[in-house]
Amino acid sequence: MTDTNGLLLAVAVSAANVGDRDAAVPLPRRLRTPHREITLVWAEGGYAGALVRRCGQKLGLALEVVKRQDIMEGFVVLPRRWVVERTFSWLMYSRCLARPLAHGRR
């Protein structure tokens, strides 16, 4: 999870065989504990359902799902989703975070 500037607030790392929706279950609580002032969270369409209800009922967080509409064609920038994508691009820009170093090279 990032703030509106793309700075990381909470992170979940899981095995590749764990789906995003399942891996996200503990993440809102990890966000809520140190950041009580946050009341609204945006998520992509894959997180709709039980996670939205759980955030509202147990944590007092409004989880708003930003969905791509069927009428959209090609690449369309969706509101709020670009912030997380930008954070990923910053991380990938630093190759040492994404790829192992070649033997003997820095």
Rank of each mutant, 00 (worst) to 15 (best):
M1S: 11
M1N: 05
T2A: 06
D3Q: 01
D3S: 01
N5I: 00
G6R: 02
G6L: 03
G6C: 05
L7D: 14
L7V: 07
L8E: 06
L8T: 08
L9T: 06
L9G: 02
L9F: 04
A10Q: 09
A10W: 05
V11Y: 04
V11S: 08
A12C: 10
V13Q: 09
V13P: 01
S14Y: 04
S14I: 02
A15W: 01
A15L: 10
A16W: 03
A16G: 15
A16C: 08
D20E: 15
D20V: 08
D22L: 10
D22N: 11
A24K: 00
A24D: 01
P26R: 06
P26M: 07
L27Y: 08
P28L: 07
R29H: 11
R30N: 08
R30L: 15
R30I: 00
R30P: 00
R30E: 14
L31W: 08
L31Y: 08
L31E: 08
R32M: 11
H35N: 14
H35W: 09
R36S: 14
R36M: 07
R36N: 09
R36G: 13
E37A: 13
I38A: 05
I38R: 04
T39N: 09
T39L: 09
V41G: 09
V41R: 08
W42H: 15
W42D: 00
W42L: 15
E44T: 11
E44Y: 11
E44I: 05
E44S: 14
G45I: 09
G46F: 14
G46I: 14
Y47A: 04
A48R: 13
A50G: 09
A50C: 01
L51S: 06
V52D: 08
R54V: 01
R54P: 00
C55D: 07
C55Y: 05
C55G: 12
G56Y: 08
Q57A: 15
K58D: 15
K58A: 15
L59P: 05
G60E: 03
L61A: 06
L61V: 04
L61P: 03
A62L: 12
L63A: 06
E64W: 14
V65N: 01
V65E: 00
V66H: 01
V66Q: 04
V66F: 03
K67V: 13
K67R: 15
I71S: 12
I71M: 05
M72E: 15
E73C: 09
E73D: 12
G74Q: 04
F75P: 06
F75L: 08
F75S: 09
V77Y: 00
V77D: 05
L78I: 11
P79Q: 07
R80G: 00
R80T: 13
R81C: 05
R81W: 03
W82V: 00
V83T: 09
V83G: 02
E85D: 02
T87C: 11
T87V: 01
F88T: 09
F88L: 11
F88A: 06
F88M: 12
F88C: 07
W90T: 03
W90H: 06
M92V: 13
M92C: 12
S94A: 12
S94Y: 13
S94N: 11
R95Q: 10
R95H: 10
R95V: 02
L97C: 09
L97K: 05
R99F: 13
P100L: 07
L101C: 12
A102W: 12
A102I: 09
H103C: 10
H103I: 13
G104Y: 07
R106V: 07
R106D: 04
